[in-house]
């Protein structure tokens, strides 16, 4: 009869997945814009919790960085999504985006970041033009190992936002999501949080699958390329590395799916992993613009 022994080797650990909201709180965000941001992010937390539960092998850690005149971490350390609470942000001041990039870079350095983490997700929301020198801090951020590998999404709020700057941040114009009215902003925040907050299955990919210097940009030659897909996660859309919500029982390919609210979210997949499906970015109504 086989001799049964307890597993040697001490405590096991899931892989951390850092999700960071980077929110413009400058004076131009005052009023409905910051109010919508507060409401939308608050309301999306349960969906992030649900998405995280579908992959118990990663730990989703959330925090918020705000910038206006200077930049500050609202949550000083990463918080497990189950414990994350949104503190309403107030708007006022200028747009020191460069300061925000400096703080981000400090946190994406190893340490404090673990070299065993999954690629972090950075979601930047802004409605204006930087008032400080953002270029060097952004360059520093993007040259960090985790800065290169981070999944970077920007939400461009209103018509005065500098999409060029946001594109510099994401490295990909398709990941600059347009939100020209409150409804669109809510949709985009929900999409970004849902698409990017679900944790990925830890399948590997060859370094060859991602062109150097184009971290997570869509690979036109490989529409199903994903950061960490499994054998069955081919996407109908243009895949970028990353994560998608996982709530369904079947492992279907990620594809747009309509919801009651009219927003399209990435199709849920129990395969864990995941592709951010650009085709699933919500349609927005261009009327009623800010």
């Amino acid at each position: 009869m086989a001799e049964e022994l307890k597993r040697p080797g001490g405590e096991l650990a899931t892989r951390p997945l850092h999700f960071i909201w980077v929110v413009d709180c400058s004076g131009s965000m005052m009023g409905e814009k910051i109010g919508t941001v507060n409401h939308a992010i608050q309301s999306t937390i349960p969906e992030m919790v649900s998405a995280a539960k579908n992959n118990p092998n990663a730990q989703l850690l959330v925090r918020t960085l705000k910038f206006s005149t200077g930049a500050t971490w609202v949550t000083t350390s990463p918080v497990p999504v189950d414990d994350f609470a949104w503190d309403d942000l107030q708007a006022g001041g200028v747009t020191d985006l460069g300061k925000a990039f400096e703080l981000l870079a400090a946190q994406l350095t190893i340490p404090p970041m673990s070299d065993r983490a999954l690629p972090p997700v950075l979601v930047l929301l802004s409605d204006g033009q930087p008032t400080d020198d953002y270029k060097k801090p952004l360059d520093d951020l993007k040259h960090l190992p985790w800065g290169k590998k981070a999944v970077k999404i920007a939400i461009s709020i209103g018509q005065d936002a500098d999409d060029g700057v946001l594109k510099e941040f994401t490295g990909n114009s398709e990941l600059v999501l347009q939100a020209n009215n409150p409804q669109a902003l809510v949709k985009m925040i929900k999409w970004a949080s849902t698409a990017a907050s679900a944790v990925s299955a830890p399948a590997s990919r060859s370094i060859e699958e991602r062109p150097q210097g184009a971290a997570f940009a869509p690979d036109a030659s490989d529409p199903s390329a994903s950061l960490s897909g499994t054998a069955g996660d081919a996407s109908a859309g243009t895949g970028i590395g990353g994560f998608a919500a996982g709530t369904a029982a079947t492992g279907s390919a990620a594809a747009p799916s309509s919801t009651a609210s009219g927003a399209n979210y990435p199709a849920a997949t129990s395969q864990g992993p995941l592709v951010i499906d650009l085709d699933s970015i919500p349609e927005i109504n261009e009327n009623d613009v800010w």
């Binding site: 690629p119 190992p145 060859e208």
Partner: peptide, 14 residues
């Protein structure tokens, strides 16, 4: 070499 995230060197390198 240790690559971050989920990337690795591969036998399939071209």
């Amino acid at each position: 070499d240790k690559l971050l995230g989920v990337e690795t060197h591969s036998m399939s390198k071209i």
